[in-house]
């Protein structure tokens, strides 16, 4: 025994079942399958196997079919078996949510795991995914989650997700663009310098916010944008390429 430590010592049977161990770690009582984000698992007890989603599809295609996002399929694994799986993310607060025949859209980098009774789809808003159906899912947030109701405008970096309300539109702060000549100029070139762009929510529902984070590199973002360049004709694609090269050289 180690003296002087107040926090309890856990074993496989005393770890919480589908509950938080502390604000920063969650213990999944696994009996079957869970989708888990790559790198979110920090420890596990029992007979648990982790397999890539596409790899798992050959065994149980109905499970993989729930994961309807080829974009993120490389970043997720299926945990199968019996045991306790501990999940955490950079010391962020971990929250579990229960969906009941509902839908919730959440920032992909903050989603850590969900039950296979839920279905995952890519949101129209880049970087976000939508969960549909009934079941439990886990998400991290920088600081506790703040729930607000529309009408509300949120900074893109602090927006964690939204439930039961229409997808947001983008609102540009005219005052900001007019006051800041430089920012107006950059806006014309599609660049931004501050608070001019917000996501505008209307209608009924709930919006989830966190304290703004130093955004983590979303590996899928490159793939999202690259796939959208298919919309460009060859000449515009060439022009875009030149601009990107110029930007890379400037930095």
């Amino acid at each position: 025994m180690i003296g002087g430590i107040d926090s309890p010592t856990y074993d496989a049977s005393t770890l919480p079942a589908d509950d938080n161990v502390n604000p920063y770690a969650f213990s999944i009582a696994l009996a079957g399958e869970w989708f888990v984000s790559k790198g979110a698992m920090i420890a596990y007890y029992g007979q648990v196997e982790f397999a890539g989603v596409s790899q798992y599809a050959s065994r149980a295609s109905w499970v993989a079919a729930r994961f309807s996002s080829p974009l993120y399929v490389q970043d997720w694994v299926v945990a199968t078996g019996q045991g306790k799986v501990l999940v955490a993310d950079r010391g962020y607060d971990i929250n579990s949510y229960d969906l009941d025949e509902g839908n919730l859209t959440i920032k992909q980098t903050n989603l850590l795991g969900f039950q296979t009774s839920l279905e995952l789809k890519q949101s129209i808003v880049p970087g976000f995914v939508t969960l549909l159906g009934t079941g439990k899912f886990l998400a991290s947030s920088n600081g506790p989650v703040i729930f607000v109701e529309p009408p509300f405008r949120a900074d893109p970096e602090s927006l964690l997700g939204w439930a039961d309300c229409p997808s947001p539109s983008q609102h540009y702060d005219h005052n900001w663009m007019a006051q800041s000549f430089m920012s107006g100029l950059q806006g014309a070139f599609g660049r931004e310098s501050g608070e001019e762009r917000q996501y505008d929510f209307t209608g009924a529902g709930t919006i989830l916010l966190q304290s703004s984070e130093a955004t983590r590199v979303d590996a899928a973002m490159l793939r999202t944008i690259e796939s959208q360049t298919n919309l460009l004709d060859n000449q515009s694609a060439g022009a875009l390429g030149q601009r990107l090269v110029a930007r890379a050289q400037r930095q």
Partner: peptide
């Protein structure tokens, strides 16, 4: 501080 706004409700504008 610029960039510190997380969200708002009401008629609010921001000016650098």
């Amino acid at each position: 501080r610029r960039g510190a706004m997380l969200g708002y409700s009401g008629q609010v504008t921001f000016r650098p």
